[in-house]
Measured scan of single mutants.
Amino acid sequence: TEEFVRLWREAVRHNQTLHWNGTDFIPGDEWAEEFARREEEKL
């Protein structure tokens, strides 16, 4: 979602874990980066 992408970019900028829907998205984590890339492509 647009909100997820916005929060993810913020988390990456501050190198912080994003807690989203009970899942931890960690900047630099391969799975999280791939998920975020797919979400961005949907926008």
Results as ranks from 00 to 15, higher is better:
Trp20Thr: 02
Ala32Gly: 03
Val5Met: 13
Asp24Val: 12
Gly22Lys: 04
Glu39Cys: 15
Glu2Phe: 09
Gly22Trp: 03
His14Arg: 15
Glu40Trp: 13
Phe25Glu: 00
Glu41Lys: 13
Ala32Glu: 01
Phe25Gln: 00
Glu3Val: 08
Gly22Asn: 10
Ala32Leu: 04
Asp29Asn: 11
Trp8His: 05
Arg38His: 12
Trp8Glu: 07
Trp8Lys: 01
Trp8Arg: 01
Glu2Lys: 11
Thr23Phe: 15
Asp24Tyr: 08
Pro27Leu: 03
Ala11Tyr: 02
Trp20Gly: 02
Gln16Tyr: 11
Glu30Gly: 10
Pro27Gln: 02
Ala11Ile: 01
Glu40Ser: 10
Asp24Gln: 09
Glu30Gln: 13
Val12Gly: 00
Thr23Gly: 06
Leu18Ser: 00
Gly22Val: 01
Glu34Ser: 09
Glu30Ile: 12
Arg6Gly: 06
Glu2Gly: 11
Val12Ser: 05
Ala11Val: 01
Glu41Ile: 11
Pro27Tyr: 02
Glu3Leu: 09
Ala11Asp: 00
Thr1Phe: 11
Gly28Asn: 05
Phe4Pro: 00
Asp29Phe: 04
Thr1Pro: 14
Ile26Arg: 14
Thr17Ile: 15
Glu2Ile: 11
Glu10Thr: 02
Asp29Ala: 06
Asn15Glu: 06
Thr23Val: 15
Glu33Phe: 04
Leu18His: 01
Ala32Asn: 02
Glu40Met: 15
Ile26Gln: 12
Arg13Ile: 14
Arg38Gln: 13
Asp29Glu: 12
Phe25Trp: 04
Glu41Asp: 10
His14Glu: 13
Glu40His: 09
Leu18Trp: 00
Asp29Lys: 03
Thr1Gln: 09
Glu33Arg: 04
Lys42Asn: 07
Ala32Val: 02
Pro27Phe: 02
Thr1Gly: 14
Ala36Phe: 13
Phe4Asn: 00
Leu43Pro: 03
Gly22Tyr: 03
Glu10Ile: 06
Ala36Asn: 02
Thr1Cys: 15
Gln16Gly: 05
Glu34Leu: 07
Thr17Gly: 05
Glu10Lys: 04
Glu3Lys: 07
Trp8Gln: 06
Thr17Asn: 06
Asn21Tyr: 12
Val5Ile: 15
Arg13Pro: 00
His19Val: 09
Arg13His: 10
Trp8Pro: 05
Ala36Arg: 01
Asn15His: 09
Trp8Cys: 13
Ala32Thr: 04
Asn21Met: 14
Arg13Asn: 10
Ala32Pro: 01
Gln16Leu: 14
Asp24Glu: 11
Thr1Trp: 14
Glu2Ser: 11
Leu18Asn: 01
Arg38Gly: 10
Arg13Met: 15
Glu34Gln: 11
Phe4Cys: 13
Ala11Gly: 00
Glu41Gln: 14
Glu40Ile: 15
His14Leu: 15
Glu10Tyr: 05
Val5Gly: 03
Glu41Phe: 09
Glu41Gly: 09
Lys42Arg: 11
Asn21Ile: 05
Ala32Ile: 03
Thr1His: 12
Thr1Asn: 13
Glu41Tyr: 10
Arg37Asn: 07
Glu30Ala: 15
Val12Ile: 10
Phe4Met: 01
Arg37Gln: 08
Glu41Leu: 14
Glu33Asn: 07
Glu39His: 10
Arg9Ser: 06
Glu40Tyr: 12
Glu34Asn: 12
Lys42Val: 05
His19Phe: 08
His19Ile: 08
Val12Pro: 00
Glu30Asn: 10
Glu33Lys: 04
Pro27Ser: 01
Thr17Glu: 04
Glu34Arg: 08
Glu3Arg: 07
Glu2Met: 11
Leu7Met: 10
Arg37Ala: 10
Thr1Tyr: 12
Glu3Gly: 07
Trp20Ala: 01
Ile26Met: 12
Lys42Leu: 08
Val12Met: 07
Trp20Arg: 01
Glu10Trp: 08
Ala36Glu: 02
Arg37His: 08
His14Ile: 13
Leu43Trp: 10
Ala36Gln: 02
Arg37Glu: 07
Ala32Ser: 15
Ile26Asn: 11
Asp29Gly: 02
Asp29Cys: 12
Thr1Glu: 09
Arg9Tyr: 12
His14Asp: 12
Val5Ser: 05
Glu40Arg: 07
Gly22Leu: 03
Leu7Gln: 12
Trp8Asp: 07
Leu18Tyr: 00
Trp20Val: 03
Asp24Trp: 10
Glu30Trp: 12
Leu43Asp: 04
Arg13Tyr: 13
Ile26Ser: 11
Val12Leu: 09
Gln16Trp: 10
Phe4His: 00
Val12Thr: 05
Thr23Cys: 15
Arg38Tyr: 10
Glu3Ser: 09
Trp31Glu: 07
Val5Gln: 05
Arg37Tyr: 05
Glu39Gln: 15
Asn15Arg: 10
Asn21Asp: 10
Phe25Ile: 03
Gln16Met: 14
Val5Lys: 06
Arg38Asp: 07
Pro27His: 02
Pro27Lys: 02
Thr23Gln: 15
Thr17His: 04
Phe4Glu: 00
Phe25Asn: 00
Lys42Gln: 07
Leu18Met: 08
Trp20Tyr: 12
Trp20Ile: 06
Thr17Tyr: 04
Ala11Trp: 01
Glu39Val: 15
Phe4Gly: 00
Arg13Leu: 15
Pro27Ile: 03
Phe35Ile: 10
Gln16His: 09
Pro27Met: 02
Gly28Cys: 10
Asp29Pro: 02
Glu41Ala: 13
Ile26His: 11
His14Tyr: 12
Phe4Ile: 00
Ala36Lys: 01
Ile26Cys: 11
Asn15Gln: 11
Thr17Pro: 12
Thr23Met: 15
Glu41Arg: 13
Arg37Asp: 04
Glu40Gly: 07
Gly22Pro: 00
Arg13Lys: 15
Gly28Ala: 02
Arg13Gln: 14
Glu41Trp: 08
His14Ser: 15
Glu2Pro: 09
Leu7Glu: 07
Arg9Val: 07
Arg37Phe: 06
Glu40Gln: 11
Trp20Asn: 01
Phe35Met: 08
His19Glu: 06
Glu3Pro: 01
Phe4Lys: 00
Asn15Cys: 13
Arg6Cys: 15
Glu3Asp: 13
Arg37Leu: 09
Arg9Ala: 12
Gln16Lys: 14
Gln16Asn: 10
Leu7Phe: 04
Gly22Glu: 07
Phe25Tyr: 15
Ala11Pro: 00
Glu39Phe: 14
Ala32Phe: 03
Gly22Met: 04
Ala32Tyr: 04
Pro27Thr: 01
Glu30Met: 12
Ala11Glu: 00
Phe35Val: 09
Arg9Glu: 14
Glu33Pro: 02
Pro27Arg: 01
Arg37Ser: 09
Asn21His: 12
Phe35Ser: 02
Glu10Ser: 01
Gln16Ala: 12
Asp29Met: 08
Glu33Thr: 05
His19Thr: 13
Gly22Cys: 10
Trp31Ser: 05
Lys42Ala: 08
Thr23Ala: 12
Asn15Gly: 14
Glu40Cys: 14
Trp8Met: 05
Glu2Trp: 10
Arg6Pro: 08
Glu2His: 13
Thr1Leu: 14
Gly28Gln: 02
Thr1Ile: 14
Pro27Asn: 02
Val5Pro: 00
Glu3Ile: 10
Glu39Arg: 07
Leu7Thr: 00
Val5Tyr: 04
Phe35His: 07
Leu43Met: 12
Thr23His: 14
Thr23Asp: 08
Arg37Cys: 14
Lys42Met: 07
Phe35Pro: 02
Trp31Asp: 06
Val5Leu: 15
His19Asn: 12
Arg6Glu: 12
Leu43Gln: 06
Glu40Asp: 05
Arg37Pro: 01
Gly22Thr: 02
Asp29Val: 10
Trp31His: 06
His19Trp: 07
Trp31Gly: 05
Phe35Leu: 05
Thr17Phe: 05
Asp24Thr: 11
Trp31Thr: 06
Val12Phe: 02
Trp8Leu: 06
Thr23Lys: 15
Glu33Leu: 05
Phe4Thr: 00
Leu18Pro: 01
Asp24Lys: 08
Asn21Arg: 14
Val12Asp: 01
Asn21Gly: 11
Thr17Asp: 02
Thr23Ile: 15
Arg38Ala: 13
Glu3Thr: 10
Ala11Met: 02
Asn21Thr: 04
Thr17Gln: 05
Leu7Gly: 05
Ala11Leu: 03
Ala11Arg: 00
Asn15Val: 04
Glu34Thr: 06
Glu2Gln: 12
Val12Ala: 04
Arg6Phe: 12
Glu2Leu: 13
Glu41Asn: 11
Gln16Ser: 10
Ala11Gln: 01
Trp20Lys: 01
Val12Glu: 05
Glu10Phe: 04
Glu10Asn: 04
Glu2Val: 11
Phe25Ala: 00
His14Thr: 15
Gln16Ile: 14
Glu33Ala: 06
Trp8Asn: 03
Arg9Ile: 09
Glu3Ala: 11
Glu40Asn: 07
Val12Tyr: 03
Glu3Phe: 05
Phe25Cys: 05
Gly22Arg: 01
Phe35Cys: 10
Arg9Phe: 10
Thr23Glu: 12
Arg9Thr: 06
Ala11Lys: 01
Arg13Thr: 11
Ile26Tyr: 09
His14Val: 13
Asn15Asp: 06
Asn15Pro: 00
Arg13Phe: 14
Glu41Met: 13
Glu10Cys: 14
Ala11Asn: 00
Glu34Cys: 14
Trp31Cys: 15
Glu10Arg: 03
Leu18Phe: 08
Gln16Thr: 14
Gly28Lys: 03
Trp20Phe: 11
Val5Trp: 05
Glu30Lys: 14
Glu40Leu: 14
Phe25Arg: 00
Leu43Ser: 05
Glu39Asp: 02
Lys42Thr: 06
Arg6His: 13
